[in-house]
Amino acid sequence: MSNNIFDNEHISFLVLSNDEKQYSLWPESCAIPDGWQVAFGPHQRDECLQWVNVHWCDLRPKSLQVQELS
């Protein structure tokens, strides 16, 4: 694995989401980027990823999913 902060299993993470209902792992120590909200956490990396797997079932951006319904 790389030294990238997103791969660090010793720090705590958040799960963020945006208006397109896309999710991102996010290091708790970093400022939350504009346009993103906390959906879960802070927790350990594994727990965050498990949460994502349960709650993010459709990878398409929300705008495409809405199109399907209309």
Partner: peptide
């Protein structure tokens, strides 16, 4: 979804 959330951030 887990891998997506770690690579598309």
């Amino acid at each position: 979804a887990d891998l997506t959330a770690t690579r598309f951030v």
